[in-house]
Every structure is written in C-alpha cells, then in structure tokens.
C-alpha cells in the first residue's frame, strides 16, 4: 500500500512539474507579447504595412513597449493597426509622437517604431491614433537607385553618340573642331576688324587735328558764327563721334565674341562634357549662327561707317568754308 502511494505521489509530481513548465511557457510567451498586465490599445494608420504581422513588437525609443494586436484593412489605401501598449509607458508618449514601420535588423521581422514627439504637452490616451510616416525602405532605395542607374546608362549612351558625332565633325562644335576653313574665316574676320579699327582710329585722329586747326585759325571763327554752318559742322562731328562710339562698341562686342569663341573652342578641345552635350542644343547653334551673322553685319556696318566718314570728310573738304583750309594744307604738303 505504501509503495503504490509512493508511485502516485511521484506521478503527481511528474504531472505537476510538466504542467507548470507548460504554463510557464505559455506565460512567458504571452508576457513577451504583452498579453497580460495592463495595456492600452492605440491605433496607427498606414497605407503600406510592409509585411507587419500581429504579434510584432512595438518600440518606443528602442524599448519594447507593446505588440501589434490587429491589422484591419479599411480601404484600398488605409490600413489600421491596433497596438497594445504597456500602460506605464503611455505617460511618456506625447500626442505628437510619430510611428513608422521598420525592420528589426537587416533581415529581421517588421516592427513599429514610435518616435517621441516634442511640442505637445499631452500624453496619449486609450484609443488614440498616432501619426505615421513612411520611411524609405531598403527596397525603395534600391528601386530609386535602379532608376538612376537606368538614366545614367541612357545618358552615357547619348553622350557616347554625341562625342562620336563631334569627332565625326558633325554640328557646330564638331565643325569648329574639324573644319579648318571656318576657323580661318573667323581669324580673317578678326583680322579685318583689326584693320578697320586701326583705320577708323587714324581717321578720328585726323578729325581731331582738323578740329584743333579749326579752333586755331582765326579766319574760321567768324565763319563759325554762321549758325547753319556751325550746325552742319556740329552734325558732322556728332556723326563722327557716334560712329566712333559705335565702332568702340562693336570692337568691344567683337572682343567678347572672340573671347567666347576662344573659350568655346578650348572647352571643346578639352572635351568638357557639358558643352559637348549642350552642342546638341539647336538654339545654341542658331545663336552661334546669328553671332557670326551679326559679326558679318557689324563688319559691313563698320565698313559702311568708314565709307560714310570718308564721304563726310569729302563733303567737309568741298564745303566752301573749309576749302581754303584744305588748300592750305595741300600747299603745305607740297611745300614740305
């Protein structure tokens, strides 16, 4: 009888130990999921939960404070996540806290991360909904990166085509690089401009001399009192001044244009990508065309201006008032 009682006792111990182990397991698993103890339910709304599951952890400043209880899809873009939060923690979470779904480690399960708010004084209460934001996840980053890569591939492909075209001598930049005639023309233009400007400057010098001589000669003073003559002379002088000013401007422009052209050429020679790329821009081509056209017209204008100046001077010679002066000059020349 004692023996069988002993056995029953041992059996009892065996069963109780087994049951306690099981209950302990159940309890600890439940505790980790915050199934027992005081919890509050709060809500968060997402449009993508990235594979979050009920039972996933919720962290606040890195501490496990709760678990995901329930996930309900309200509409095609609104997913409400019910979160059980340990009651004691709620007094530390302000109403302007934000939450995001992140992954626990590189390949870990998903978690909800609550980031502390700063401005609000109010604590969250039972049933509150906290704001959420979507963090860029690795996948999305990779997706963006792949788009960038595709674009880069396209770009390099096109650049390759452009450089090929340029080296083949197509387009303005290409022709600048390859077409020796064009550069020669440009040089000639510049050369002509230089000559023209020299000529005009000497003309102006001569004009100055004439004017000073007019000032000096007494006989002319009376004549100058004649207003019509004076006006004419004035006009002529203003015309000359205008012409010279225009010439100055033209020369300035020319300088700039040449400088620009030089730079362009050097850049192209250096192979700076952007310009090569930009050379495809048709507007630029037309601009360069226009510039060259302008240059041409400017040169023509300058020539015209020089001609007009010559004419003016001729007219001045023929004016009876100044005839004597010119004759005297010729005489002086002969005398010399």
């Amino acid at each position: 009888m004692d023996k069988s009682l002993n056995k029953v006792l041992k059996l009892g111990i065996f069963i109780i130990v087994g049951t306690i182990l099981f209950i302990a397991g159940v309890y600890f698993i439940g505790e980790k999921q915050n199934m027992f103890g005081n919890t509050y339910n709060i809500y968060a709304v997402f449009n993508n939960i990235n594979g979050l599951k009920p039972g996933n952890n919720v962290r606040y400043s890195g501490i496990n404070v709760g678990t995901v209880k329930e996930i309900v899809m309200v509409s095609d873009t609104v997913i409400v996540v019910k979160i059980a939060i340990v009651k004691e923690i709620t007094k530390h979470i302000k109403t302007d806290a934000k939450c995001a779904i992140t992954s626990d480690g590189l390949v870990g399960s998903m978690i909800i991360n609550i980031l502390p708010g700063h401005k609000s004084e109010m604590n969250i209460a039972k049933g509150d909904t906290i704001r959420s934001f979507t963090r860029i996840r690795t996948e999305e980053m990779l997706q963006t990166l792949s788009v960038t890569n595709e674009n880069a591939a396209l770009l390099t492909g096109e650049l390759l085509a452009i450089t090929k075209e340029i080296s083949a001598g197509k387009g303005i930049v290409g022709s600048m690089l390859k077409d020796t005639l064009l550069t020669k023309d440009l040089r000639e233009i510049v050369h002509h401009l230089k000559i023209t400007s020299k000529a005009s400057s000497s003309t102006i010098n001569q004009l100055n001399k004439i004017l000073t001589s007019i000032d000096k000669k007494d006989n002319l003073v009376g004549m100058l009192r004649d207003t019509s003559v004076a006006n004419k002379v004035k006009n002529i002088i203003t015309n000359v001044e205008k012409s010279s000013r225009e010439l100055d401007k033209v020369i300035d422009h020319l300088d700039l244009t040449i400088h620009n052209a030089n730079q362009t050429i050097t850049n192209v020679k250096d192979g700076k990508g952007a310009i090569n790329y930009l050379s495809n821009d048709p507007s630029l081509v037309t601009k360069i065309d226009q510039t060259i056209g302008h240059l041409d017209s400017t040169v023509i204008q300058i020539n015209n201006a020089g001609e007009k100046l010559n004419e003016n001077l001729e007219a001045l010679k023929n004016t009876w008032l100044l005839r004597k002066y010119f004759k005297n000059q010729e005489k002086e020349k002969e005398g010399n």
Partner: peptide, 18 residues
Amino acid sequence: YFDEVFRALTYSDLIPST
C-alpha cells in the same frame, strides 16, 4: 538566453505542437 527564446516563440509555435 531565455529572454531571446521566449521573444522568438509565439503561441502559433507552442499550441499546435502541443
């Protein structure tokens, strides 16, 4: 160790297998 163990386990592990 046991914190890790119970964190990893869920009722869907324990109950069906029991």
